[in-house]
Amino acid sequence: MKWGIKILPREVLLDTQGRAVQDYLNQSGQEVSQCRVGKYIVLDLKQTDKEASDKDASSKDASDKEAFKKEASKKKAIEITEQTLINPLIETYTIESL
């Protein structure tokens, strides 16, 4: 199951990359009031699919099973994001299903 994690530097923090890009854009005649540079990470969680299907093997309702798998996968993606992919002191994130 694939998840997209969008990571941005916190507003209070000086984003030197964003500032450099913004300066260039303004110098080249574009009118940009703010430009911030972050990163986008795509996670494909194989393991969680398996774990979820093992745990929920008894469920007969296919849509229930799918929802359960997705929820477990999202939980895992959030855990990975918060423990490794971001540093909450300097970054914020949003997560989306792909």
Partner: peptide
Amino acid sequence: CETGLLPGVLVRNDHG
């Protein structure tokens, strides 16, 4: 700092 053994974080120099 990233291990959490020390407080805070180091970010890009303000002058870039």
